[in-house]
Design a protein around this nucleic acid. Structure first.
Length: 657
DNA sequence: CTAGGGTTAG
């Protein structure tokens, strides 16, 4: 890589300076005095001097002169910064940055770059020009441009980072290092721009860059994020073939990827093979263990999670805050509050203080169980111990309150957050409120309107999910005309409807005795290829609830042919046959379902038990039905069991005793 | 460069 270095007049001058004092001008005199004071650390005298003689070119000269003592340069520049009337030029700051880079003080260089762009208002390309023009081979290092890219990515400005790379490449024939590309690509992953990542990655490859282990890790990370685990593993092998050795990060990402697609066993196998595959070079670290522990927690296997925790301890890796947070969440997820709280006290004993992640998890699961009292107690404890709320906390509170019937409290909390400017513009909270308002009783529409108006006042438009939530809400309420009005508004606003929205409308039409209209609509959607199982299930359900036997069976056979059948389809039919025929016929449909390889679920359970109860079958038959379903693998629906089967069993056993 | 918590439409 060739660099066409352009020497600035300034740098040339500062290098020459200090040898001859032939023609002394006022700046030269100031310069020599500053140098003397600085060398002798005479700060007071220096300050006095600076207050009257400051220019950017003088500062640049001093910075260059002392480039071998970066601490001194920083001390000097700090004092320069205290002179309120002086503002350094771009070039002056650039010289300082060059000096910082060449003495490997990258963080300081980053701070100065950030300051140029964030506070002083220079654009990334202006800074680039500044650095390029002040480039002096005796002072500067080529990786100053890598650092500029880091500065851009560090505040999330990926476009600027890319423009810097391309400007250097096309205008100046300068190629940034693979490290700069890696940094850029990594930030694309962090901001979840995965499509962009692949584009830019292949662009980089097309320029002839040779990937290193970090680059491979980034590729594997992206594939794991996209749940393309097998491709990730094949990249792993490609990496081995090209002679680049994976490191513990590579293994960790693949193990985590396996856990995330709930193939924990594969993750575990990889973990056991790490040593062998790396010929003893790579050992698991705390991250490896935490990934696996999380995997087991998510599938509810707390026993294995705990034994991995023991194993890491025995290996000399102490469980950390993340290990505890993972385990606490794992227990809460299973409803084991006692174990979770026990772990909390254990971590405190080890002086690992629970943080907001742990609190969020606890509060979320308490709300989930409907234990509002306990949730409030923990929340006030969180406030008392000065643990910060974050966007997770806010989301948990809004959802938890809404779901448990405290909609006004949720609305007030949201209003408070808006006032404090603490609401993201992703509309998640608003969409959640709209969703639950539609499912709450009186006066909800006016409150929905209020939420939406407030949102618009804040300059946010409704997104597709907001529209979808409203359309579905109206459809479910039976006011299909309102649903369609909202749909029209959405089109007027230029938003593109999607399949979910069409399905809401199909469902709404079916449930409002307009199955014929629904059928016409589905036929149109079919022409456009815009339909799926959900669309057809809605229509099937429509036919069934209108006793339209022929249409229903026709559609079902079509669905079978197209392999567009799932558990919901069968549940609709089980219900239909119970109504149109008998429990026995319903159960026969369920047998077909089992033969087709689909497992009855708790909804099948509710349908059959409820219908059996209505048709007044005897106690023995009900119990036999319950047992049959349980044998087929159904976990009974709690509400249905408590309502029908439980009381029967109690009654019968009290008769016996 | 890798690990923990949440939420929205059929």
């Amino acid at each position: 890589m060739l660099l066409k270095f352009r020497r600035s007049n300034l740098s040339a001058r500062s290098v020459h300076f200090g040898k001859h004092f032939n023609s002394l001008n006022p700046e030269d005199i100031a310069f020599s005095s500053i140098c003397v004071h600085l060398r002798q650390r005479k700060w007071k005298l220096l300050d006095q001097f600076l207050s009257s003689n400051l220019t950017s070119s003088l500062v640049s000269r001093v910075v260059s002169e002392f480039r071998m003592s970066p601490e001194l340069v920083l001390g000097f520049y700090k004092r320069v910064g205290m002179q309120k009337s002086f503002s350094p030029s771009l070039e002056c700051v650039c010289v300082l940055i060059h000096v910082m880079i060449s003495s490997k003080r990258y963080d300081d260089a980053l701070d100065f770059m950030n300051n140029l762009m964030q506070t002083m208002g220079y654009s990334h390309l202006e800074v680039l020009e500044g650095l390029w023009n002040s480039y002096n081979p005796e002072i500067s290092c080529p990786n100053v441009f890598d650092t500029l890219i880091r500065a851009c990515t560090s505040f999330g400005d990926m476009n600027s980072a890319y423009e810097v790379i391309i400007n250097l490449r096309t205008e100046k024939d300068f190629h940034v290092s693979i490290h700069a590309w890696n940094n850029f690509l990594n930030h694309l992953i962090k901001s979840n721009e995965l499509n962009f990542f692949w584009k830019k990655y292949s662009e980089m490859i097309s320029y002839g860059y040779i990937e290193n282990v970090y680059t491979y890790n980034l590729v594997i990370h992206t594939l794991c994020k996209e749940m393309r685990l097998h491709e990730a593993i094949s990249v792993f092998y490609r990496m081995l073939k090209s002679g680049i050795y994976p490191n513990v990060v590579t293994f960790n990402m693949i193990i985590n990827g396996a856990c995330k697609i709930s193939d924990v066993n594969l993750g575990f196998k990889l973990f056991r093979k790490m040593g062998l595959m790396s010929m003893g070079h790579i050992n698991p670290n705390s991250i490896t263990f935490n990934c696996l522990i999380n995997g087991y927690c998510k599938i509810g296997d707390m026993k294995t999670a705990e034994s991995l925790t023991d194993e890491m301890t025995k290996m000399g890796i102490e469980p950390n805050l993340i290990t505890y947070a993972t385990l606490v969440d794992g227990y809460l997820r299973k409803g084991c509050k006692k174990d979770a709280f026990l772990l909390c006290s254990q971590m405190v004993d080890k002086s690992i203080a629970p943080n907001n992640v742990v609190y969020n998890s606890i509060i979320h699961w308490l709300f989930f169980e409907g234990d509002i009292t306990m949730a409030s107690i923990i929340l006030s404890y969180m406030i008392k111990t000065n643990i910060c709320f974050d966007k997770f906390t806010n989301s948990i509170l809004v959802t938890g309150l809404s779901r448990n019937g405290y909609l006004n409290e949720a609305l007030n909390y949201h209003k408070w957050l808006v006032g404090k400017n603490l609401v993201d513009k992703d509309r998640f909270l608003e969409n959640t409120l709209v969703y639950y308002l539609f499912r709450s009783g009186n006066d909800s529409i006016s409150k929905v309107k209020q939420v939406l108006d407030d949102m618009i006042d804040r300059g946010l438009s409704l997104d597709v999910i907001t529209y979808g939530t409203i359309i579905d809400g109206f459809s479910k309420q039976g006011s299909i005309s309102n649903a369609i009005r909202v749909y029209d508004d959405m089109i007027k606003e230029g938003k593109k409807p999607n399949l979910v929205i069409y399905n809401s409308i199909v469902d709404g039409l079916c449930k409002n005795l307009s199955v014929d209209l629904a059928k016409i609509m589905v036929d149109e959607l079919k022409k456009l290829g815009l339909f799926d199982i959900v669309t057809l299930n809605s229509l099937l359900n429509g036919f069934c609830s209108n006793w339209n036997v022929n249409e229903a069976l026709n559609l079902f056979f079509q669905m079978q042919e197209g392999k567009l059948v799932n558990e919901v389809t069968y549940n609709i039919l089980v219900n239909f046959f119970c109504k149109i025929g008998s429990i026995q016929e319903g159960r026969e449909v369920m047998e077909v379902m089992v033969d087709e390889g689909m497992a009855p679920n708790s909804i099948t359970y509710t349908i059959l038990v409820m219908n059996a109860c209505k048709s007044k079958v005897g106690f023995e038959e009900l119990i036999e039905l319950h047992d049959d379903l349980v044998v087929k693998g159904v976990i009974p629906d709690g509400q249905t069991y408590d309502l029908i089967i439980g009381p029967l069993v109690d009654e019968e056993s009290s008769k016996l005793s």
